[in-house]
Design a protein around this nucleic acid. Structure first.
Lengths: 259, 259
DNA sequence: CGATAGATTGAGTAGGGTCAAAGTTTGTGG
DNA sequence: CCACAAACTTTGACCCTACTCAATCTATCG
């Protein structure tokens, strides 16, 4: 088999297009099984350094010299952007199978803090080693490119949400996104735990914590979500479809029936 | 020279970190000379298909099967995101040396329209061919990764701007970004031509066209920019530093002296 | 020269920010 | 095990920024 055969049908081969269309939303990463495959390929091809983390642990920090990429095996991370003038923002959320540190490639240093929001395990891979391995292993290179591409896709979706949706819909969209992220990793989505404070969610969505709180209360009132007893971080989603359509159409859908 | 030597110092080797720190803002791409080098490397390594475009021409459209990446040799492009429910957004701006189509890698189809806003020339490269070439040419692979990484960085900066800045500062930040993009390609920045309507700028920044217009008027009043006679698309920037600090600090800086 | 697309500006409004006061959880130390 | 503190959340009242609607003005092009 000549090497060019391997590349020939790369995008279609993995069937991302179909998956994405089917669920009506882009995926931060490949589906559950694909993630497992990807992790297996990675760990069998390059030397990974495993590290257990607990909520609050930082894997890398803004300004540190770029050297490794990190792949999330379990747990949930947030990326914190810090601008030169002190503004801070949650720039992204990472789940199992996601990569972290891409932005460092172009700059030579990390441009975010990567902070665990949960116990979990990250794999560190030296970037130079990875490049060398990619040259030998086309599948690995494709994997890497898909991961970077997926990050670009996700960031655009976030932009679209932030720029075009009113507050309530933005929060609904956020919850849908979180649930989809879990779903594409084979986890339950009827009941999810947001391991973020209202302030963090607001920061991520360009809203204040009060507005997030009000939006959540409104979603509860409209029966699109409900809180579990004891603690307001466990959310039940009776009908993902309803929630998602609310997010997409702004409050128009509910607006003309209830308000 | 063994191939692993080539990878060893990849990020530092290109000196992006220094450049970025010096100008206080991330670059969408490498500096003028580096872009020329990159384009030379690309055209000498893989088979590029050159295409001249005029304002309004579309290079690829949402939904088309992904097959090529596009590199901008001259001109300015916008990327248009189109969500399933009809919301539309200018998702990015592309200048000489920038790549287009990355988001298609993960999805198998393009997720934006790429539209020329000016006459220019784009180079099309088959993605499968490119992958094969990357395996042989480490420099090419690094180039590609840096371009994808730079896009991620830029998108994060946009998010930060959109989520944390008031309207006037956001517009100021946008103009600074445009000027920086030109500067890093060796072009004049004291006088620039925004080839976008107020509606497009507003859409990109999550504002209405009226708000953009008012913000521009305000910037003129505060002498941070001025319009050229005949046409309100040619903008003079007497002092980039002032404009940039206005963008970063919101209107606080001007607020306590003028208002 | 009119027609059309784009830009500016004003007036009124509403969505979301700000400030403030309680209420809930979680965690810690006695 | 309880009490207290600290962190987080909710809700209300008020206000301001940016959106909406509308009129007018300016360029560009046939």
């Amino acid at each position: 088999m000549h090497s060019s055969d391997v590349y020939a049908s790369s995008p279609a081969m993995h069937g991302n297009a179909l998956t994405a269309l089917a669920c009506g939303r882009a995926q931060t990463g490949p589906s559950g099984q694909r993630i497992a495959e990807a992790l297996r390929l990675l760990s069998s091809t390059v030397d990974v350094q495993r590290r257990l983390v607990r909520a609050g642990d930082t894997v890398y920090q803004t300004g540190q010299r770029f050297s490794h990429l990190y792949i999330l095996n379990s747990g949930i991370f947030k990326l914190l952007s810090l601008s030169s003038d002190g503004r801070e923002q949650v720039a992204g959320l990472k789940f199992r199978g996601d990569w972290m540190g891409f932005a460092g490639i172009a700059k030579g240093h990390y441009v975010c803090d990567a902070v665990a929001m949960d116990t979990g395990e990250v794999w560190a891979v030296r970037y130079d080693t990875l490049l060398a391995a990619c040259a030998r292993q086309p599948e690995l290179m494709m994997l890497l490119h898909e991961a970077m591409s997926a990050e670009i896709v996700r960031e655009r979706e976030t932009m679209l949400s932030v720029c075009t949706l009113p507050a309530d819909a933005r929060v609904a969209d956020f919850i849908s996104y979180w649930a989809d992220s879990l779903a594409s990793r084979g986890l339950r989505t009827d009941q999810i735990t947001l391991c973020m404070t209202r302030a963090e969610i607001g920061n991520y969505l360009g809203l204040t914590l009060e507005t997030v709180s009000r939006a959540l209360s409104k979603l509860v009132r409209e029966r699109l979500i409900s809180f579990e007893q004891k603690g307001r971080r466990d959310i039940s989603i009776p009908d993902m479809g309803l929630l998602r359509s609310y997010a997409q159409r702004g409050q128009t859908a509910a607006g003309h029936t209830l308000q």
